[in-house]
Structure formats: structure tokens, C-alpha cells
Design a protein around this nucleic acid. Sequence first.
DNA 1: GCATGATCATGC
DNA 2: GCATGATCATGC
Length: 461
Amino acid sequence: MKLPYNPNDKNSILEFAKLLKGKTLREACDETILEHDYSGKGNFGQILEKYYFLYEPNSESEPDFAIAGLELKSTPLKQLQTNEFRSKERLVLNIINYLEVVNQEFETSSFWKKNANILLVFYLHQTGYNILDYLIKLVDEWNFPNTDLEIIKKDWQIIKQKIENGKAHELSEGDTFYLGACTKGGKGGNLRAQPNSDIPAKQRAYSLKQGYVNHIIASIANEPTGIYGKLISSVAIAKIQTIEDVVISKFKPYYGKTIEQILALTGVELNTKAKSFYASLTKAILGIELNKEIEEFEKAEIIVKTVRLKENNLPKEDISFPNFKYEEIVNEEWDDSDFKDILEHKFLFVFFQFENKQLVLRKVKFWNMPYSDIMEAEKVWAKTKDIVANGQIVKEIRKGIRLTNFPNKKFNSVSHVRPHASNAADTYPLPTRDGLTNATEYTKQCFWLNNTYVRDEIYLK
DNA sequence: GCATGATCATGC
DNA sequence: GCATGATCATGC
């Protein structure tokens, strides 16, 4: 069959691909597509390959357009209130072959062979739409900038090293910065063999963090980049230092200093009462202008948490996460739950400690939750889901105060559930009536990290 | 002194 | 109006 483009010529492929812009699959593809039933189901990428580019999916290790060296990837966008586009999710790349990766070097790896040059097709996801009717918004090729590539190489090494250590089953997206190892494949996850361990490991694929994809989108859409400040200013620095190295070396001179002293030393004037005070102080220490975002943190989706320790090392407060919605959690599975997603992020903890009523900077620490603790957190999540689903939130009403069955600090050493609302009347709707109160809504709650956990497993380790 | 439920304050 | 970081109040 004569193709409408030359699959061996990159420019020809790109030119043909860009004709997709502003169209839906239904408009862009051959009419034979209409003979198939893709109502809601199916995979955008497969339809794009088969009915637009008119080829059958080929071997796993070569890029889709092998001779042109171009890998085709389609991925959904969401639109903000401001009309700007953001990635709806991480960009999932090829599956990690645990048995083979340990014998590869980055330059010869299946990741690099396949994804060095990617043809990206971004479509606008709209709830309730047929997959054929999503509007294609952006189409372009993507090459990793040199500085990013150095960080990605290090990420790849971290993933490889963990597999080499027989810990493929403990991989987490939080292990790395831009390039992640995300779970892929149905409920329960397809299990695969791994080298150096008999434990079957969940199938995972290389993926680019959602925050990284947002930067790809901004770059392709030619959005202004001036709103970002960089920690790593050149490839030369990226080759010898990690994001972690750079951040820690900038914070270290301020260890042991009070907030007042740090402000004096950085010469930045900040309102210590402002909600954004700690975020601003972090930027000041890192040498980032206050009106800019930290590019590397956004790309890696690093969650910064400031902790104030009491003199006995116990954090003054537990650490909160966003509220969960009762109607959503009962329909979630752990593997695609919001809570697991958060816990698989990379965190930067900034520890201050009270010393004679003054706050002193102790240290900063990059951290992601170990596998065994994520499994502990899963118990908290599962119990919470169960209690909501069965309408058993309220255990007892004592003096007008509702005691709940939500997992408390005694239930689990990692995490607990507690209210997080303006007041008791600040609620989310319930999926089922609560047995004791017959309620249709309940005070907003969220998952918290136990302060004892933060002390023992993050600060003191 | 801590655990748990409740609430406040800021900023978008 | 809401999300988020921070804090309070009460009882054991």
C-alpha cells in the first residue's frame, strides 16, 4: 500500500503528522475507522498508528519509525481555567525489561534506542467524549536538552542499580527526578521476573514525570520560559553534580543559623508571617528570584515540606496532604489512588528546630518513601476506603464530638487520617449513609504523615 | 504530654 | 470559595 508519507524520512513524517493539528481522529483518519466500535474504549495511540499512519505496531525494541529513528507517542492534555495546556498525566514510554537492562549501558539501552527522538501528539482529553473526538492540539518532535539528558542518565542509572540489587519490586517513581519507573498494566499489575531475586516484580515502564511533560508542552507551544529560575546553569555542572548535590551545597552554609541570620546573610527581605515565607526563604537560599519557579523542582515534581522540630526532635505538627473526597476514594484502587501517587513523589524536607524559642535551620533532605512504608500506608488507605464504603465513619458521639473509626496513629506507624477543614460543617458528600449518624456528608479529612514517623524515618536517618 | 477532633489564616 | 499550612482545645 502506498503511504501518504515517507516512513524513512523524518521530515516527511513530521510534515504529515503536523496535519493532525486542529483535527480529531475521526476527521483525520481513513473512513474505515468508522466501521470499528471505539466507543470510549481503546487506545488513542493504537488508532493513530493504524488508521492515520497506516502501519501495524512493530517490534518492541526499535522506534516506531525505525529508519527515521522516530518514536510516536500520543498523550492527553487538560486545559486550565486560564486556557493554558497542561499534561493530564505522566508520559509512559517503553516497558523496562528487568532481565536485560542490567546488561545495558545508557547509550545502548532500550530506553535510549527507542526514545532519543520522539514524535509527540498531544490531544485534549474531555470527559464523556468518544476517543475519536478528542481534538489534537500540539504536534512536534522532541529531543532532550543536554542538561536534562544528564539528569535523565542519572535517573536511568538509579533504576538500573535498583534492579541490579534485586529490588525491582521496590522501584518507585520517587526514586528519580525526571525519568521515572511507573507501574504499567492492569489491576494487580502484571508481574515479571527480575534478576538477582526470586520475588516477582510489578511490570513497570520508563516514564517522564507529569511536571516534565508540562515543560515539553510549554516548549512546543512556545510559551515564555522567563518565569523559571534554574538551579543547574550548564551541562558542565549537570555532568558533575546532581540536583541533590546542588541544593544541599547551597543550604549547608546556613545550617545552624537562625531565620534572622539567614535573612541577614541572603540580604532578602521577607515577611516572616506570610504564608509563602518558607517557600520564599528556600528560593532565597537557592539563589532563585522570588517571582520565579524553580525549574528543576517543577520538572521533577518535588514536594517541599518545611518541618519545625521541637527541642526533643519531634516535629511540632504532623504533615498533611490534600483532602480526599469520599465519593472518589471508594472507587479507587490503590495502584491508581491519589495517595499512592503523592507518596511516590520525591520530597525535599527542610528541617528547622526550636532552640531557645528561635528557629534554627538544621538540615535539608531529599527523600522518597521506602517500599515497605508505602505498603504500610496502603493499609491506612485501605481501611479508610473500607470505612467510607461501609458507612461506618462515626464510632461514637461523646459530648457532641464525633469519634471516628478512621485509622489513627496507633493503627499505623506511618500515616493516619484526621480532619482538615474550616470547621466540622466543612464537608464533602458521602457515597453511603453513615450507620451511626445517617449522614449524607462528612467533615473533610486527609491523610497525614505521623510526626513520629517523620522524626524517626526522615529526620534522624 | 500526646492523640484526636476542630479550627484558623493566608493567598489565589 | 477553597486549598493549604499552621495551630488550638480537650480529655485521657
